[in-house]
Simulated assay, not measured.
Amino acid sequence: MLESRLGPSSLLRVPAGAVVADVLRDAIVEGRLRPGDRLKQEDLMQYFGVSVGPVRESLRTLESEGIVVSAARRGYLVSDVTLEEVEFLLPIRLVLEQAAFTQLQQTLDEDVLRALRQRIEEIRDGASNNSIRQVNEADQAFHEAVVLSCSRSPQAVRLWRLIMPRVRMLFNMLTPMHRTLSAVAQEHEILVQAVESGSQILLQTELDKHIRTQPQTLLQAKIASPGH
């Protein structure tokens, strides 16, 4: 089961706990490992070809990030993203990105704007390929380009990176609920236009809609859908 979700282990050298955590994190946030899936230490040891130490280290790391949970008599499970958590996390992300986007609006750094337009093209390519993974990777890269280039505080960047694994899980859940995948590119084009407009009110309005309001609305619709 693990090989079908993580890829062939022959491609990996014997990894340390950090590398095991990286592989598992990517599989979780991309949806190859689903909420509720059990992560058995014995299976992970066999798949990665390591002792129990690196496996336990990786699971503790992922637990500290909130993307796995430990359950009595069941071991470690992939955690779910709840509406309550989204209502807590998204305002934090909004504050961090508002500061970075405002700085970009003031400087209109052409290198950053060029990078954002390239990420939008990558989102469009992903939509054309009907690839949710490609869309989500370009989506994150778009926001990362702004945060890394325009945040004035290293602490803000660290906090943004800390919450992003959970946000990436949210991306994976909600991207299929957009009217079309190409709509994701349009949303990011609107953000660039708001930056270039020079209107701080317009920028803050579009960021709030993109980062907080729309994901909450989509998640509420998903929770209310039959069979959830």
Rank of each mutant, 00 (worst) to 15 (best):
M177Q: 08
V19K: 15
V68C: 02
E57S: 13
Q98G: 06
Q214G: 06
L202D: 05
S79Y: 10
S131N: 09
Q220T: 12
P8M: 12
S153M: 02
L90M: 08
T82A: 02
R5V: 04
V112Q: 07
Q186R: 11
L218D: 02
Q118V: 09
V20G: 10
F101Q: 00
F88L: 15
G36S: 03
L94M: 08
M169L: 06
F101N: 01
L59F: 05
P154L: 01
V23Q: 10
R124S: 11
D125E: 13
L219D: 01
A71N: 12
E137W: 08
T213H: 11
N129S: 13
A221F: 04
S4I: 03
L104N: 04
L2R: 07
L94H: 11
R5P: 00
M45S: 04
R212F: 10
T102Q: 14
P35H: 01
P54G: 00
I201F: 12
A156T: 11
T82L: 07
S153R: 10
S64A: 15
I190S: 14
V147D: 00
V50W: 07
Q103Y: 06
S182Q: 13
T180C: 05
N172Y: 03
Y47E: 02
L33F: 04
D43A: 15
L6K: 07
M169Q: 13
V192K: 05
R114M: 07
G49A: 08
V86N: 09
F101E: 00
N172K: 09
S4A: 13
Q220G: 11
P176Y: 02
M169V: 02
L181T: 07
L148K: 12
M45C: 10
V52W: 13
D125N: 09
I123R: 03
Q98V: 09
D80I: 03
H188M: 05
T213K: 15
A16F: 12
E122Q: 14
V68W: 01
L181P: 13
E85L: 14
L203F: 05
L94A: 04
R34Y: 07
R25A: 12
L174R: 01
A99Y: 01
G31S: 04
V69K: 14
K209S: 14
K40L: 14
D109P: 12
P91T: 00
